[in-house]
């Protein structure tokens, strides 16, 4: 019998839980289809489905769904509401499931993350697996195995990130959501440009989550956006060891526009604030990055 194909879109939650989910379902003998890195066609497809007020990252995400709709049996969607009372996500993550089921006809498998309602990853996965008559012990094994792999994977990323702090040359912290940093069209061109100019780019998303969540309270004691807390915590953690900060957000991200503004008033390092929309040309961004680097080099 052919394996059942589960599609995971390479966008938004993929950059937090995608690696884990892929391993989990592969362990249980599903075939996991992850959409390719964002490309022009994916963005253009996403635009067709999107409302004009959605942020670029969500538009990209919808493009990935459109890509997957005829390439898998089920589409995996996470609906992330909160990781506790004061750890909420933005409305995009909240609306993903309803948005996708309304826009597309392909069957979905959903995981609801709502800690305040005792809904977590394990329970979500269990609900999915019960549809396929998978025994509890198998689920447990798959979960543990995927968790171990995931920990190793994350640890590796964290070490690489940390090691950059000991390298010679300019060190810049790129503060952005994981789904923007790692996107081929949003963050990657900027990272490539910086690295070609011999800059060590440290990523705000590759730190010990618990540690930086706690550190974030130094700059913002009463913030409740989980992903933004991560961003802020990374600044608090290494601000003394870096030469400058690049804030990157996708237009028109609500939480970022508020939180970045707030943090910019408190930091003591040079920074630039880049907002990416659907632009075909990188020239404007390059001008800003080049002059930012010039200034930092003059200061050193």
């Amino acid at each position: 019998m052919d394996k059942i194909k589960i599609g995971i879109p390479r966008g938004l939650f993929y950059y937090y839980d995608g690696y884990f989910l892929k391993n989990f379902f592969e362990y249980l003998n599903f075939e996991v289809v992850v959409s390719p890195e964002t490309n022009r066609i994916i963005i253009d497809e996403g635009m067709k489905y999107a409302n004009d007020e959605m942020c670029l990252s969500l538009k990209v995400f919808l493009g990935h769904i459109a890509y997957l709709q005829d390439k898998c049996d089920y589409l995996l969607i996470m609906r992330i509401d909160n990781y506790g009372k004061y750890n909420q996500t933005c409305t995009n993550f909240l609306s993903l499931y309803d948005l996708v089921t309304n826009l597309f006809t392909i069957p979905t498998l959903d995981i609801n993350i709502e800690y305040t309602n005792k809904e977590n990853m394990y329970i979500g996965l269990k609900k999915i697996c019960q549809k396929f008559n998978i025994s509890n012990s198998k689920i447990k094994n798959a979960y543990d195995s995927a968790l171990i792999k995931n920990k190793k994977h994350n640890k590796n990323l964290i070490t690489i990130n940390k090691n950059k702090l000991n390298k010679k040359g300019l060190k810049l912290l790129l503060v952005a959501h994981a789904y923007n940093i790692n996107d081929e069209y949003i963050g990657k061109p900027i990272i490539k440009y910086l690295e070609n100019n011999n800059i060590n780019v440290i990523f705000s998303n590759n730190f010990e989550t618990k540690e930086i969540l706690n550190l974030s309270y130094k700059y913002c004691p009463n913030l409740y956006w989980y992903y933004n807390k991560e961003n802020i915590g990374s600044i608090v953690k290494i601000e003394d060891k870096i030469d400058g900060i690049i804030f990157l957000s996708s237009f028109p991200c609500g939480p970022d526009s508020l939180v970045n503004e707030l943090v910019i008033r408190k930091i003591r390092k040079p920074y630039i604030n880049l907002v990416i929309d659907d632009l075909n040309s990188l020239t404007g961004i390059e001008t800003r990055l080049e002059s930012f680097i010039d200034i930092l080099e003059q200061r050193v």
Partner: peptide, 11 residues
């Protein structure tokens, strides 16, 4: 004589 900060209009 050293540039310490700059800002540019958004796009």
């Amino acid at each position: 004589g050293i540039i310490i900060d700059y800002a540019m209009n958004t796009l």
